[in-house]
């Protein structure tokens, strides 16, 4: 099973490239010209999202530096121990919607300090594996097309994250506790 999964993750990218280029050649598409034509857009989009990235990343960096995330997890720790949620995973719950690299950092920290056999490591693994950095996606996707009124998009993202956290706790307790 793990061999198969390894095989898939190693081959996913090369397979896509092989298929796309081979079909392209076969259908007589000028693949080099079309490639460079498409690639031009990469630069445009990346430059376009900078202002939105600056706003979001600076805001989140400030929040992390202020110690607000630790304060929040201290406040909630009493409630959450009742649901068999290890206190170590609390910062992760808050951070995982805000910053992908920070979430991975917190997760590695938990894994290395508490070891492979702890429930916290398993719960943290499920939480990180099942999440995407909501606010980064919001900034990049809407920034690229210049949308300023996000309507309910933030609410959906945050609620889905909360549902994700609750189900992670539930599933992890069911399987690993």
């Amino acid at each position: 099973m793990s061999n198969l999964i390894n095989l898939i993750s190693v081959w996913a990218l090369p397979a896509i490239l092989l298929i796309v280029l081979t079909v392209g050649i076969f259908k007589k598409v000028p693949i080099y010209e079309e490639f460079t034509e498409g690639a031009k857009d990469g630069f445009k989009i990346a430059i376009k999202i900078i202002p939105y990235l600056v706003a979001i990343i600076v805001g989140i960096a400030m929040l992390r530096a202020s110690g607000a995330i630790e304060m929040c997890s201290n406040l909630m720790s009493g409630v959450l121990t009742r649901f068999n949620v290890p206190a170590d995973t609390l910062p992760l719950m808050i951070v995982r919607s805000l910053s992908g690299s920070a979430a991975l950092g917190v997760f590695s920290d938990i894994a290395n300090n508490l070891g492979p056999d702890s429930f916290a490591t398993k719960l943290a693994a499920v939480m990180v594996g099942s999440s995407e950095t909501t606010f980064y996606v919001l900034a990049v996707y809407f920034g690229a097309v210049g949308i300023k009124k996000l309507r309910y998009a933030v609410l959906v993202g945050v609620l889905a994250d909360i549902i994700g956290i609750i189900s992670a706790v539930w599933v992890a307790n069911l399987m690993f506790a």
Partner: peptide
């Protein structure tokens, strides 16, 4: 990475994939 994938995507689009 954006440039690369947008380039590949353009080929995929032109070849009907």
């Amino acid at each position: 990475i954006m440039a690369f994938w947008l380039g590949i995507m353009r080929i995929a689009q032109k070849s009907g994939i």
